[in-house]
Design a binder for these strands. Structure first.
Lengths: 201, 201
DNA sequence: GGACAAGGTGACCGCACAGTCAACTTATCG
DNA sequence: CGATAAGTTGACTGTGCGGTCACCTTGTCC
C-alpha cells in the first residue's frame, strides 16, 4: 500500500532518535508519570514534532518496549546453549535486572495493557524465558514445583523492591535477586501452596 | 487551642466514614489512579463534602494509611511473644500480604512521599518489624546475613508480582511469599552481594 | 540554484483533574 | 417550636494533559 519505503530525511531521523532517547531518560528518572512535553523539552524539539513521529504517546511507548524487550529476547536465546542451565537462567535474570536498572519499562508489560505490539513482543520474550526455565529445572538447578510463569512474575521484583528506598545504591537489586533466586533453588525448599498460574495474559 | 473538641454531627460522621470506605474500595479496585470524584460518586456525596472532611486528597490518603498501617503495627506487636519467632515472622508477612490483597496501600509507603503523618506511622511499623526479624534471626529461623530492611523491602513483593497477570487467583500471593521466604531461610543459602541497606527513608 | 514535498513549529482545543465558594439544608439545643 | 451553627451542594476556576493543525522551514533531487 505505501508507495515506497522512502527513507527518513536526515533531520527527521535525528529527531526521532532524540525523542526515543529523551523518553527513555525521562521514564528512567520519573517512572511512568512522564508527559509528552517533558519528553519534547528534553529532546529539544516542539510538541508537533513528537506527533509527526508517533501518532500517540502509546506509539512511542511501543517503540521503546520493542527495543528493550527485543534486546532481552536476544540475551535469552543466546543463553539457551549455556553449558550450565542454572547459571544460564541466573545470568539472564541478572542481565534483565541490570537493563531495568537503567531504563525500567517493566510497568509497560503489566497486564491490562491492550496495545497489540506490546503484547506480541512480550509473548515472544516469555517463550524464550520458558526455554531457560525448563532446562534449569530439568537439570535440578531450580526446584521442580516452579515454572516459567513463576520466574516471569518474579523477574522484576528485585528492581521494584529497592524503589521503597529514596536513593538506593545502584546495584542493590543484586542482593534481592540473590535472595529470590535462592528461593527458587531446590535445596531446603518448602512445598508451595496452590499451583503455578496458567500464563501471563 | 481548639475551643472544644465538639463531636461531629451524626450526618457528618456518617459521611466521613462513607468517604473513607469508598476510597478504600476505589483504591483497591483501580490502584493509585483514583480521582476525588470517583470516591465521592461511590460514597454518594457531593464533591464539596469531601473537601469539608479532608483539606486535600493527600489528607484522605493519610487517614487511610493510618488506619491500615496501625492495624499492621498491632499484628506485629502481638507476634513479638510468638513461641516460634520464625513462624511469627512468617505469620506477620502472611497477614500483611492478605491485608494488601484487599486494600493495597503499599504505594503510599514508597520513598519520596513527603507527608509527615505517613512517614511517622511508617517508621513505627518498621520498628515493629525489626523486632520480629531480629528474633527470627537470633533463633536461626532466617539466614544471618539479612536484616529488617531486607524484609521490609521484600514484604510487598508477593502482592506486586501477581499484578502482572490480568486476573490472578486471589491467593496467588501465598505462592510467592513462600518462595521469597524460602530465600530468607538459612538452609542452602548462597552468600549475598553487597550489604544490607541502611534504612528505609 | 530552484521547486517542492517532507518535516518542524507552537498556538490552540477539549477534557479531566484538584480544589473553592456562595447559596442552600439540616442536626442540635435551649 | 425556632434560632443558628454545622454541614451539604454543584457550578465554577485554574492547571496540565494528549492531541490537532495551519503556517513556516529545510532537506532532497533534478
Amino acid at each position: 500500500m505505501d508507495p515506497v519505503d522512502r527513507p527518513l530525511r536526515v533531520d527527521a531521523a535525528r529527531n526521532r532518535e532524540l525523542l526515543i532517547t529523551a523518553a527513555e531518560e525521562e521514564f528512567s528518572a520519573k517512572g511512568s508519570e512522564v508527559s509528552v512535553v517533558d519528553i519534547t523539552r528534553r529532546a529539544g524539539v516542539a510538541k508537533g514534532t513528537f506527533f509527526r513521529h508517533f501518532a500517540t504517546k502509546d506509539d512511542l511507548i511501543a517503540a521503546i518496549v520493542g527495543r528493550h524487550v527485543g534486546a532481552l529476547i536476544d540475551v535469552a536465546e543466546n543463553l539457551r546453549e549455556a553449558t550450565d542451565p542454572g547459571e544460564g537462567l541466573l545470568d539472564f535474570l541478572t542481565v534483565a535486572a541490570a537493563q531495568r536498572q537503567q531504563y525500567d519499562v517493566s510497568f509497560l508489560l503489566r497486564a491490562g495493557d491492550d496495545d497489540e505490539r506490546v503484547v506480541e513482543v512480550r509473548n515472544r520474550l516469555y517463550e524464550a524465558i520458558g526455554v531457560l526455565v525448563d532446562r534449569a529445572r530439568a537439570t535440578g538447578a531450580v526446584r521442580d514445583d516452579i515454572g516459567a510463569t513463576d520466574v516471569i512474575l518474579l523477574m522484576c521484583a528485585p528492581n521494584h523492591v529497592v524503589e521503597y528506598l529514596s536513593s538506593p545504591p545502584p546495584d542493590l537489586w543484586k542482593r534481592y535477586l540473590a535472595i529470590i533466586f535462592d528461593g527458587l533453588r531446590p535445596e531446603g525448599a518448602h512445598p508451595l501452596p496452590g499451583r503455578e498460574p496458567v500464563a501471563v495474559q
